[in-house]
Design a binder for these strands. Structure first.
Lengths: 153, 153
DNA sequence: CTGCCTGCAAACTCTTTGCACGAAT
DNA sequence: ATTCGTGCAAAGAGTTTGCAGGCAG
């Protein structure tokens, strides 16, 4: 999905839900879709303020659930206190995250079997799966230095 | 693993690490292993205070990482703000959690393939996997009432 | 115009921490 | 006797919310 298509999708979502298309919502959207890597709410606030310095923290926090629900943003919770977000740039199947515990970098990898697994398991319990997430914590094993990641410095 | 074996394991862990065996640590341990379901730090505080009313919130929070690291407790983070914990009662392989979004009940299910998957994927990235977690969100589909879980009431 | 949206700041939740006292070794 | 562990309360991080004014529709 191109960025323009995501933008279109988001604007349609807002209109359809009776939500207003404000300068702040657009600035926050644009800031998010400039990013290639995962970002936090606080980082998004900084990025959005470059575009429109009237954007407040509250509005960023109020926008993130809307963007997530509209399907243009993926929320990634690696259990580290703060949540990360990533623009969804294509209609991939399920993805998993591999988190390096040394440098905290998050790798997104496709995990097509997850959907099947979620269905299998949930149906045994009488549940209908909505979403699933697989997260792997790992150490860098580069340079034969256990516990140290080259990306960390 | 029986509860007695877990108790032994925990006491050994404490001693081995040079940590003291205090009444509070034992009370917190005992409170945790009375539980059949997932519990939060706050709930554990309540349970432990029944056994020893001198137990404080701080000590519970300080004990949880120790118990987790000693391998007798599993930490489960479903991204809901607070963490859940569950006594590890047997040496199963990997487990996944299925969380009902209606009643918030957490089901633990074995997922033996996860270990293989973590290894496969991590090695491609030059990483050594430490742990992996799979979580599925689902709706109850009992009673043909979408969006409503019979366990919720 | 109407009422949703906003910024601000305070409040909130969960967890961590500094300190002086108390207990395990 | 040491030294680690503890309770208390305050601090901390991240996020949410009440309010009065502002802007989209």
């Amino acid at each position: 999905m191109s960025n323009d298509a995501s933008r279109e999708k988001y604007l349609q979502y807002l209109t359809q839900k009776g939500l207003r298309v404000t300068n702040q919502r657009i600035a926050i959207y644009d800031a998010a879709f400039e990013q290639k890597e995962h970002f936090t709410a606080e980082q998004l606030l900084d990025y959005a303020r470059v575009i429109d310095d009237s954007v407040s923290r509250a509005t960023v926090y109020r926008s993130l659930p809307i963007m997530t629900e509209s399907g243009i943003l993926r929320e990634v919770d690696i259990g580290s206190g703060e949540k990360f977000y990533l623009p969804i740039t294509n209609n991939t199947t399920q993805v998993a995250q591999v988190v390096c515990v040394d440098c905290d970098k998050i790798f997104e990898i496709s995990a097509p079997f997850m959907e099947w697994y979620g269905s299998t398991v949930s149906s045994k319990l009488g549940l209908t799966p909505i979403s699933q997430r697989l997260q792997v914590s790992a150490h860098c094993d580069s340079l034969r230095l256990p516990g140290t990641c080259p990306r960390r410095g």
